[in-house]
Computed example of a mutant assay.
Amino acid sequence: MCTVCGCSDAKASIEHTHDHSHDHSHDHSHDHSHGYDHSDHHGYSHDRHHHHDHAPGDGGLVDCSANAAGQQIAGMSSDRIIQVERDILGKNNRLAADNRARFRTDDVLVFNLVSSPGAGKTSLLVRAVSELKDGFPIGVIEGDQQTSNDAERIRSTGVPAIQVTTGKGCHLDAAMVGEAYDRLPWLNGGILFIENVGNLVCPAAFDLGEACKIVVFSTTEGEDKPLKYPDMFAASSLMLINKIDLAPVLDFDLARTIEYARRVSPKIEVLTVSACTGEGFAAFYAWIRKRVAQMKPTEMAVSG
């Protein structure tokens, strides 16, 4: 097991669009080689320095970072563990910077939606893109370990979506996002939503080139989630507390949840929403439009 996450030789499959009008070329003089073996048109072999040393015949994963005994079993020193982590995140961060430059050139605002499984991230996104699509060009990149169910739900709204199936991988990375972005129609002046794999741990460490992370938290998860998974809440600019319509029947303490989140990240913004009833979405859209307005002066200054 690498020290960043539990992915072991994960193979991602990025969906090929059959409608070629959705394919476009972001030729901004970038090297788009992400270290994938393209010999298989649907399977990508990650060359991301994921060197995993396991005990002979262990048949599984060893948490090398847990303690010295675990390191001895895996045959890895602390120095090697640190170096592997640096290699993984260093390469990802370079590709994320490439993505960010491409998004800036295309004048695209990118949000990385993260949550635990079942928080209602997809339902929230389906409502949001349905109601925003007339005001902005919108595209979606969907990340899941298996199935294209969520991408199909997004497409049913008329918004283009590309599915990234990560297999054993527990998060999206910058290379996957760059490949998927190439398969979307041009979103000039629009918004790209990235729905990450349901996981409150590993996606916190991986920059995808987004403007910011939005953590979707459900009232059904318990108030202490920000304290249990502090890295994710610290990395997010906005916390959307979803399923707020259920709060009265769950004995949910909203004030305590917000206090815990701000204990981890004092500047995090918080909005309450219900993907089911639409409550709070007007405030969410106002937040998005504010981010769009903040981006425009920067883009004009760069172009000037």
Rank of each mutant, 00 (worst) to 15 (best):
T147D: 11
D107M: 07
V201F: 07
G158Q: 05
G60A: 13
D19H: 10
H18Q: 09
V270C: 14
D37S: 15
S78N: 10
V215L: 04
H171Y: 01
K243F: 02
F284T: 01
S78P: 15
L192C: 13
G35W: 02
S21W: 07
V108N: 01
A282H: 09
V110C: 13
V62I: 13
Y44R: 08
V270D: 08
L254F: 12
P226H: 05
S265H: 14
L132T: 09
F217Q: 06
V159G: 07
A128T: 15
S303K: 07
G120E: 02
G60F: 09
G139M: 01
V249S: 15
A161L: 03
L89P: 00
D245A: 13
L184F: 06
L95K: 05
D231M: 08
N149M: 08
I268G: 03
D58I: 08
D23M: 09
H30C: 08
R104S: 15
P56V: 05
Q72L: 11
H51D: 14
E15C: 11
I241N: 08
F217G: 00
R291P: 00
G90P: 05
K213E: 00
K121N: 12
C202G: 01
V177S: 00
T122M: 04
D9Q: 13
A180C: 12
Y260K: 06
G178K: 01
D19T: 12
H42E: 13
E210M: 01
S65F: 08
G70Q: 06
L61R: 08
G70T: 06
E131A: 10
T298W: 04
A286Q: 13
E223D: 10
C276S: 12
V270S: 13
G167S: 04
M1Q: 10
D150M: 02
T298S: 09
H34F: 15
A205N: 15
E221P: 04
N92F: 00
N199Y: 04
K267N: 13
S130Q: 09
A235D: 07
K11M: 12
P226E: 04
L246K: 07
E85W: 01
G189M: 04
M76E: 14
D23Y: 10
A180T: 06
F233Q: 00
T147I: 05
G158L: 06
K91E: 04
H38E: 14
V62Y: 03
G169V: 06
A283T: 09
M232I: 13
A205H: 12
S21I: 07
V108P: 01
D27K: 07
I81Q: 13
A293W: 04
I214E: 02
N149C: 12
N93S: 09
T122K: 02
H52V: 12
N199K: 06
L227T: 14
D47L: 08
T298L: 10
D63H: 11
G59V: 07
L187Y: 04
D245P: 13
M176K: 01
H171M: 02
A55S: 15
V110L: 02
Q145T: 09
F193D: 01
I194V: 14
